[in-house]
């Protein structure tokens, strides 16, 4: 039984990645036993300057999921390079740097700072999909040519694996995914949290200061599955699924729908050993089906070609 595969330019020993914003950047959690079953880990979204994040309530439980409005609290690129990356050298899984940029200027400054650390970062995941910062318009009304400019510039500045994480709220997700491919990225991550909100009935006010927040967890799985199905039918680069995967059945379903690998986030709140349990479940499934490598499952629900 084999799980190792190069996905979007990044060699993974398991097709399960811990998604951005749920896992500590403390090296103890980047080693066994916490990494059993884990193919790679995404850092928290890193911005040019440090950010304190949003005020007020930040996490709110919903039916089989949660809304979050963290607002990208992070140490900024300098803080990350000084206080976290050196310690993370002791990790036992690849590091995917989740980057959030305000625009082309930010991007260039950040990439200058990252240049000396090229070999310490296994891949970049450009986050074009956080719903909790800036104006919502950046996701809902982004022009594809702006996205192309960003991805194209990053591609010129970064020669290692490059993934772009898109929003499920995008009005033209397939066009965006095609643009990402055209600009030379190695993979596209589908997707991020879905825009939602909650109202505190006692206070008779929205729960979150920004009113809207991002929904994640088991509740969103079928929604994201559809997007993975559609995008993977349109692009040839690797599609990585992110949204609601909470069991081995979900992971297999997403791979059958066309994902080359899946990211898991919120389910780690529920079960720290979720990665290992999912991998074991997939292993049993493959054995039962007599399939030697999981890659033979990719897109198989469409009855079409394998990678």
């Amino acid at each position: 039984m084999s799980f190792s595969l190069t996905v979007g330019g990044l060699p993974l020993s398991f097709p399960l990645i811990i998604s951005s914003g749920v896992w500590p950047m403390d090296v103890d959690f980047w080693k066994p036993p916490y990494t059993d079953g884990v193919g790679a880990i995404c850092t928290k979204g890193i911005t040019l300057n440090p950010r304190g994040g949003n005020r007020g309530v930040r996490v709110w439980e919903t039916h089989s999921g949660l809304l979050n409005s963290i607002g990208l609290e992070n140490p900024g690129i300098d803080g990350f390079l000084k206080d976290y990356l050196p310690m993370l050298k002791g990790r036992s899984v690849p590091l995917i740097l989740n980057l959030w940029v305000e625009g082309l200027e930010d991007l260039k400054v950040m990439m200058d700072k990252l240049k000396p650390h090229r070999d310490e970062i296994d891949a970049i995941e450009l986050n074009l999909s956080c719903p909790n910062v800036g104006k919502e318009s950046h996701i809902l009304r982004r022009r594809v040519d702006e996205l192309k400019a960003l991805v194209g510039s990053l591609r010129e500045l970064w020669d290692r694996p490059l993934w772009v994480k898109l929003s499920p709220m995008s009005p033209s997700l397939i066009d965006e995914a095609l643009a990402v491919e055209e600009e030379g990225a190695d993979g596209v991550v589908i997707a991020n949290t879905w825009l939602g909100m909650a109202i505190d009935v006692e206070r008779e006010r929205p729960v979150f200061e920004r009113i809207t927040a991002g929904l994640s967890g088991p509740a969103i799985f079928p929604l994201t599955l559809r997007l993975v199905w559609e995008v993977s039918s349109s692009v040839r680069i690797a599609v990585i699924g992110s949204g609601g995967v909470s069991s081995w059945e979900d992971a297999v379903a997403m791979i059958l729908a066309g994902a080359w690998a899946v990211e898991i986030g919120s389910v780690t709140f529920w079960d720290l050993k979720a990665p290992l349990k999912i991998v074991k479940g997939m292993e049993d499934y493959l054995r039962r089906k007599g399939i030697a490598h999981y890659k033979d499952l990719v897109g198989r629900a469409k009855g079409g070609a394998n990678p």
């Binding site: 994040g53 930040r58 996490v59 979050n68 709140f269």
Partner: peptide
């Protein structure tokens, strides 16, 4: 504070203090 991960990963339980978050 409200929590999700409990291990420092999600920043859901961050609190503003005079010395930072």
């Amino acid at each position: 504070e409200r929590m999700a991960c409990g291990i420092g990963g999600c920043y859901g339980c961050s609190m503003e203090t005079p010395r930072g978050m």
